[in-house]
Design a protein around this nucleic acid. Structure first.
Lengths: 226, 226, 226, 226
DNA sequence: AATGAATGAGTTTTCATTCAT
DNA sequence: TATGAATGAAAACTCATTCAT
C-alpha cells in the first residue's frame, strides 16, 4: 500500500494504468478508422457513422474522444503537420544554398508522402473549404513556417528578394500536385519527384531532368498495394 | 381549369413561345445559387436544400434540371472548363517558344480567375475527393489537353523531353495556389501573378521578379469586393 | 383561365385549396396528439417521437409545423389562453360589484376547465419551470390582464385597495387547485366549485357553503370517462 | 494491491472509521447538486448527468445512492415534507380558533419558504405530472394531513362543516402562488404574505390588509440574494 | 465504495426525393 | 412545368446505466 492512485482525473503517478492504455488505444482506433474512411470517401461524404462502423467501438464512444467529424480531421491533420514540419524546418534551417534549401525540402516531403500515403491522401482530398484550411493552428503554422523560412533565406542572401508569399504558394502547389502523380506510379519514386521539383525551381523548365517516365500504369487510384 | 401557369413567380407573358427561355433562365438561377453556396460553404457542407433556398424556385423544380448536387457541381465545372480551355489551348497552339507557351498560359489563366473569382473558388474549395476530380469528362479532358499540348510542344522541340505528367502537375499546382494568393490581395494583379509563375518555370527561383509585394492586407478571404 | 393562382408562397385568392386544407388539418393532428401525450405523460417525459407516433404523419412532417416540443406546447397554451382570456376579461369588465367580479370569474373559469379537461390538464401538469411559465406572451398576458382588471376594480372602488399582485396570485392558486379537485369528482360540478371559491373570496372560510360533498370516489386521476 | 482508496478526490484520512460519514456526506452532495439543478433547469429538463456534473463525484457513484433522477427528487421532496409537516401539524393541533388555525399555518409555511427558497423552487417548478405529485408517500401524506386537520377542526366546531377537500386545495393553492410572489419581492416578507393569506381566508377580499405594496422591483426571479 | 470510460438504445434532426395539385 | 408539403431513411448526438479497475 504505497502507490498514489489517481485523484479526480489528475494524472496518476505513472499515467499508464490499464485504463489509460485503453484510452490511448481507442483514440488511435478512431483516428485510424477516420484516416481510412476519409481516404476512401473523401471528407465531405464521410459520416461519423462511417468512422464508427470502421471501428470495434460503440457509437457513443466516439463522442468521448471527439466532438465531431471535423475535430477528428483536425487531429489527423495536426498529427501530419507535427510529423513533417519539424523535419522540413530542420532541413531548411541547415541549408546554406538555394540548392540545398529547395532540394532537401522536396526530398523530405516526397519521402514522407511516399511513406505515409494514407495521411497524405486524407489531407489532400479533404481540403473542403477555405475555413478548414486556415483555421487549424498546426496547418496554418506549417504554411507560415515555410514562408518564414523563405524570408529568412532571403534575408540571408540565399534567395533573391522574391515575393515570399507567391514562392511559398508555388512550392506548396508543386509539392502537392507532383506528389499525387508520384503516388499514381508504381513503384513510387520520391527521389525522381524531388529531382523534378527541385530542378524546376532551380533552373526552370529547361533544367528539368529528361524523362524516362515509366509507363503510367492506368493510374489506378484506389488499389494501392505497392 | 382555373390555373394560370406561372413562371418563376411572375405571371407569364401572354404568349407561350418562351418556354425555352424560362428553362434556360431557371437553369442559370440554380447554377448561380449553387456557385455562391459552394463558394460559401464548400461543396461537402452544401446541401441541395441550401441551393434551392438561394433560389426563388421550389424544391421540386430543382430536379427538373439536375439529378443531384454533384450534377450541378459538374455542370459548373464544365462551364468553367468550357470557358477557359479553348482560350488556353489556342494560346498554347500559337506558341512557337517555351516562353510563349508558358507565359501566355499563365496570363490567360490568372486573368480568367481574376474575372471569375466565384467560379474559381467554387472549383478550388470543392476538390473533395479523387473520384470527383477524375470523373468529369470536361475536367479530365482539360488536364489531358494540357498534357497533350506539352507533349506536342516536346515533339516540336519547344520543350526538352521532360516528364509531361509531372510538368502538367507542376503547372496546375502553381497556377491554383498562386491564383489563391493573388485573390487574397487587393487589387488583384493577374499580370504580376503570371509574371511570377512564368519566370519560375522559365528560369527557376533565380529568375523570379524581385518583389514589390503590396502588403497583404489582412488577407480577408470572404469580403471580396475588388 | 382567370383565377389567380398562388405566387411563390403568397396566399392564393381564396386561400383554401386542398393543400391549405391539409396543412391546417395536419397542424391540428399534431396539436391534438401533443395534447393527449402531454396529458398522459407530462410535458417533461413526453418526446417529439411520442407525439409523432400518436399521429398518422411521418417524423419529418412534424418539423414542417413546429421546431420543437416546446413550440407545440406553447401553441397549445396560447390556444387555451386565447380561448379563455377574452371570456374572463369580458366578465370582469361587466362587473359592477366585487361579488360579480369574483363570482363570474370563477364560474367562467371552472366551466371552461370542465368543458376542456384535456387542455387544462396539459397546461396544469406541464408547468415545468419558471422560464416556460413566464416566457409565453399569451400566458404572461393572461396573468397581467387579471392583475390589470383587479387594479381597475380597485380604482373603481369595487375592491378595497389591496395588494393586486397577491390577490391575483391567490385567485390563480385557488382556481387551479380547486379545478383539479373538481375534475377528480364525478360528475364535474363547476357551479359548486365556483360557489366555493367565490364565497371564500367574498367572506372567508366562514362564508363557505356547507358541504354536501359527494364521496370522492377513490379519486381516480387517469380514468376520466364521465 | 497498490490502490489507496480515495474519498471524494481527497486522500482519505488515515483511520477508516468514518465510512458512514462519507456516505452521508456524498448523499448530501448529490441532493444539494440536484436541488440546484432542478431549480435551474426544472425537473423535466434536468438529467442525471447534469446532477453528477454539479458534484465532485463520479457518475457511477450516483447509483450507489439513488436509482434515478426521480428518486433524488422524491428524496428532496420528502426532506421538505419532513421539515415542514411536523411544524404545520403542531401549529394546527394547538389551534383553538379558526383564526389561529389559519394564521399559524400560513405564517409557518411562508417562513419556511423564505428560509428555504431553493427547496421551494425545486418542488414548485418540478410538479411535472400527476403521477409524481400523488405517488410520493411523504407528500400525499402532507396533503392528507392538512385535510385530516381540517376535518378534525370541523369536528371540533372550529370550522363550519365545509368541503374539506376544496378547502385544502384552496389553502395549498394560495400558499404556493403567494409564496412565489413573495419570493419575487425584495426583501422577502413572510409576515405580510401570511397576513394577506390569513385575512383572505378569515374574511374574504374585504378583510384583506390594505396594500403598502413595495414596488415589485423588476421581479428578478433568478438573482435571489436576499 | 469510488471511478469514469464504454455501451447502445433512443431521440432529435436533417435532407434528398417524390408526387398530388 | 412549377409547386412545396410529405416522406422516411439515415445522420448526429445524448444519456442512463454498467462494469472493469
Amino acid at each position: 500500500m504505497d502507490a498514489t492512485p489517481m485523484k479526480n482525473g489528475l494524472p496518476r503517478a505513472a499515467a499508464s494504468g490499464k485504463r489509460e492504455q485503453t484510452k490511448i488505444q481507442n483514440r488511435q482506433l478512431i483516428l485510424d478508422a477516420a484516416r481510412q474512411v476519409f481516404a476512401d470517401l473523401g471528407y465531405g461524404a464521410a459520416t461519423v457513422r462511417d468512422i464508427i462502423r470502421a471501428t470495434p467501438l460503440a457509437s457513443g464512444t466516439f463522442y468521448n474522444y471527439f466532438k465531431s467529424k471535423e475535430e477528428v480531421y483536425q487531429a489527423i491533420r495536426d498529427e501530419v503537420a507535427l510529423a513533417i514540419r519539424p523535419r522540413l524546418h530542420e532541413e531548411r534551417a541547415k541549408a546554406t544554398t538555394v540548392e540545398e534549401f529547395i532540394t532537401c525540402s522536396f526530398r523530405t516531403f516526397f519521402e514522407y508522402v511516399s511513406d505515409d500515403r494514407l495521411n497524405f491522401r486524407t489531407i489532400r482530398h479533404s481540403a473542403d473549404n477555405t475555413r478548414m484550411r486556415v483555421d487549424t493552428p498546426e496547418v496554418i503554422a506549417g504554411f507560415e513556417e515555410l514562408r518564414a523560412d523563405i524570408e529568412t533565406a532571403i534575408a540571408a542572401g540565399l534567395f533573391p528578394p522574391v515575393d515570399p508569399d507567391f514562392l511559398m504558394a508555388a512550392i506548396v502547389g508543386v509539392a502537392f500536385e507532383v506528389a499525387e502523380r508520384m503516388l499514381w506510379r508504381q513503384p513510387h519514386d520520391p527521389a525522381a519527384a524531388a529531382d523534378f521539383a527541385a530542378n524546376l525551381f532551380l533552373g526552370g523548365v529547361r533544367a528539368l531532368p529528361l524523362a524516362q517516365r515509366p509507363d503510367v500504369p492506368t493510374a489506378e487510384v484506389t488499389s494501392d498495394a505497392a
